[in-house]
């Protein structure tokens, strides 16, 4: 099986999703099924094909450099689970 427990553990950490030990095998199984299934794409000849990142065939629009936003701290903090004194907060980070 290409997608094993260790891989699930690694990507689960990258995605910051806690996965309990006992669920690792089951999830590895599910993900492996899906990956096996998508691997049929290798049959497709894509020699010299440019990857398509967007269907919108237009150029990136650009805005003029003006201050038109911000200065709305209350709105920004309104939904914060643990805002304090104008700041967002997180568990203490030691660097």
């Amino acid at each position: 099986m290409a997608l094993d427990r260790e891989t699930v553990q690694r990507i689960a950490f990258l995605a910051r999703i806690r996965v309990d030990e006992e669920r690792l095998d089951q999830i590895a199984g599910e993900l492996d099924t899906i990956i096996d299934w998508v691997e049929q794409l290798s049959e497709v000849d894509t020699e010299g094909v440019e990857p398509m990142t967007s269907v919108a065939d237009m150029l990136a629009p650009q805005r003029v450099d003006q201050v038109t936003d911000g200065d709305c701290r209350d709105k920004i903090l309104a939904n914060a689970p643990d805002a304090f004194d104008g700041f967002f907060t997180v568990p203490k980070v030691v660097e």
């Binding site: 998508v38 794409l41 497709v44 894509t46 440019e50 398509m52 990142t53 269907v55």
Partner: peptide, 14 residues
Amino acid sequence: AYYVKAQKVRARIA
């Protein structure tokens, strides 16, 4: 192997 390949197949589909 996966993401870029998929974007290429996407181009073929379009």
